[in-house]
Structures are given as structure tokens and as C-alpha cells.
Write a protein that binds this DNA or RNA. Structure first.
Lengths: 198, 198
DNA sequence: TATACCATGTAATAAGTTACATGATTTG
DNA sequence: CAAATCATGTAACTTATTACATGGTATA
């Protein structure tokens, strides 16, 4: 159900076809709430049925058409109401920490490999989030640029500041995960020293 | 499928009934990989069918019996193999950051409320994780105590150190979330100053 | 003897994943 | 005119959530 609000958030910037929406999704709000295309199209249908968006048929090429979706007033209302609801936190399900807790059952070499992969994973994510951050800050992010141009009801500084704040939080989290995994590698070294000495 | 390995991890400490397992789960590995009782019982059935655990009927009271499950050699093997597999990272789905990114659509008072709830949520989790950490460190955690008594193939220091490492990672994460939310509150104050001044 | 705890689930639904499927249009 | 991109999905499956359901045993 949250996907619906992620899509509405994107549609507050401008009307889009399902395809555009899916593409834009993956380079913006999809970083915060992931969904594959196969989940986006059915959700659009449901949002249409619920009156949160409306579709307009526009020509595509000589003979074909495509559907452009716009958020309706009811959609904006629903989005604003959802924004003011309490967040439902999901329970922890952390596959890496589940392994880390039982590393004694793992080959030390395998444990090291897992920790190095963890570092690589978060370094990649960190780079992606940092790139988003840079593009948001200097308004070169196309969706932010269009949002700033079209959104007249909110302060431009606030629009940017909240997105910067969000991605900064992700970058911090990545840094935390990387630091944690490095400590894990150091711990494996220590345990290795202890067992070889005795 | 990960739930199965979380349950096997717990059963490496000692044989347990489904009920014991569920209870122990919630105060140990369930902090790392959550599951409700209603998911645990069917998974036990499947693990039994797959030969990862075996059940032994033990008397309960005068007329009744209960089933005590033990991990089999095949179960230990499967667990060890799973430990050495690559971690499958799940995509980001962060309901709080999704809101934070679009706080301009929210009442500032509501945004503040969300951030305060975020802080309260992670302060609660932090306290729980810290309590686990203390109980693991001094071996007063009943499951750790039994594990240390029964597990002869692994170094006691390593058994404890990996669990300490894991929960320290959670505590760090909680600290990060709390610091992030506090910065959000400060940001809201700043934006408030700017708009009242102009 | 009532209350808490032990014991063991099922059913219905919602959400998410993976793989597959097809055809039109634009561009180099 | 071939390849990339645009356009739009469906089907099957797995996982997880929520709510409900029942009865025995120990203990104060």
C-alpha cells in the first residue's frame, strides 16, 4: 500500500505515462521505496479505479496512443493525509546480521568474504546516494528541476532541504554499515591471533 | 526461507518444543530476524519433512505429550552451508525516509511528530538491543549460557564475540537514526525561522 | 477453582518476486 | 533496416501479516 504513495509523490511533480513513471521511479523515489515495473503497472490501475489519478490518452507516433496519468485532487488529498499518518515500522529482518551473529559456524575465510561483500554493497549504495544528493543540491536532478518549476505551493528551499536531509540519512547509514563491517574484519583478525597463539 | 536458518541457529543451542522455540526465538534470534508464532509452526513442519530436524514425543503432565525437536546432522550441514552463501540484500523500503523526503507536503507540526516518534522508536529498540548486549557479555542470557555449555566445537570467546559484534551494530544503527531525526527537527526549526522572517 | 501459561496450530489476505510476453516507434 | 527504447502488462509463486481457534496443565 505504501507503493501507491510513492507513486503519488512522483506524480505531484508532473503527469507521466506508466513507462515514464516507472523509469523516473527507479532514479528517484525508488531509492527510498523500491518496486519493480511489474508492481507499478497494476498499482496504477488500482489508483485509477480509486480516483487518485486520471488517465488521458495522448497520441504516440502516427497510429498509436499512450496513456498519461495525472494526480487528481482526491489523490493529492490522500497523499497529504497519508503523510500525516503514523509510520508503521517493520520488524527487523537483517540477513547479514543473522549470519554475523553465528559466524562461529562459518569458515573464517567465508566470514571475511561476507564482511567484504557487505562493505562493497554499501560503498556502491553510498556512491549512488551521494550522486543523488549532489544532483538534488545543485538542482541538476531532472525530477527535482521539474518539481521546483511546477510546485508553487511549497518553498523551493524546503523542497530541496527535505530531500537532502533524506539522502544524507542514507549516506550516514551506509557509513555506519561500512564501519561496522570493518570492525568485524578486525574482530576476525583478533580471534585468529588468539587461537594461533594458544 | 531465511526463517528456517534462524530456527536452525536456535536449535544448535539445544533441543526444544515448538512452544519453547517460539518463546526463545522472540528473546534471541527474533531480534535479528523477526517472525510471528504463526510462521514458526508451519516452518517446523517443513523442516521436519526435509529432515533438518527430528521430533521426539515426550510426556507432558499425566496424560498428554509434547514434541521436542532436535537439529539433525543434515540440519547442521544445511545451516553451515547457508552460512557460507552470499547474502541476498533486499531493496530499500523505508517508510520513514519516504515521508521525510516529502515533508513539504506535511504540516510542520506533523513532521515534527513523525521525527519525535522516530526517535522514540529507536530509543526503545536501542534499549532492547543494549539489554541483549549486556546479557550476552556477562553470559546471563539463558540461551547464550546453554549454548556455551553445550557447544564444544567452537571457542566460547568467539561465540560471545560475534553476538556482541552483531548487537553493537544494531545499537550503532539506532544511534544513527536518532541523530538523523534530531537533525530533522533542527532543520524544521531553521525553515520555520526563514519563513517567519520573510 | 480460576488464572496464567503451555501447546499447537489454521484461514484469509496482502505484498512482493521472478519470469515471461508482446508489439510499436524512434534513431543511427 | 536493425537495434534500442517506449509501451504495457500477466502468471505463478513465495513470503509475511492478521486474526482467529482450541484445549490441556500447573499453580496460587
Amino acid at each position: 500500500m505504501t507503493l501507491r504513495y510513492a507513486l503519488l509523490a512522483l506524480l505531484t511533480a508532473q503527469p507521466m505515462t506508466g513507462y515514464d513513471l516507472a523509469k523516473s521511479f527507479h532514479v528517484s523515489v525508488g531509492h527510498v521505496w523500491h518496486a519493480p515495473d511489474s508492481q507499478i503497472y497494476p498499482e496504477l490501475k488500482r489508483m485509477l479505479a480509486d480516483g487518485f489519478i486520471e488517465g488521458e490518452s495522448v497520441p504516440w507516433g502516427a497510429a498509436s496512443t499512450k496513456t498519461r496519468y495525472s494526480i487528481t485532487d482526491a489523490g493529492v488529498d490522500a497523499f497529504a493525509r497519508w503523510m500525516d499518518e503514523k509510520v508503521e515500522y517493520v520488524h527487523e529482518r537483517d540477513p547479514m546480521r543473522l549470519r554475523a551473529a553465528y559466524f562461529e559456524w562459518s569458515d573464517p575465510a567465508a566470514a571475511r568474504a561476507r564482511l567484504r561483500e557487505h562493505i562493497a554493497h554499501y560503498e556502491l549504495l553510498r556512491a549512488q546516494w551521494q550522486a543523488q544528493l549532489d544532483a538534488i543540491r545543485d538542482h541538476s536532478h531532472p525530477i527535482i528541476a521539474r518539481r521546483l518549476a511546477s510546485d508553487t505551493r511549497h518553498e523551493p528551499e524546503a523542497i530541496v532541504a527535505f530531500k537532502v536531509f533524506t539522502y544524507e540519512g542514507f549516506v550516514d547509514r551506509a557509513d555506519g554499515e561500512i564501519a561496522w563491517a570493518r570492525r568485524g574484519l578486525a574482530l576476525l583478525d583478533d580471534l585468529d591471533d588468539i587461537s594461533t597463539k594458544s
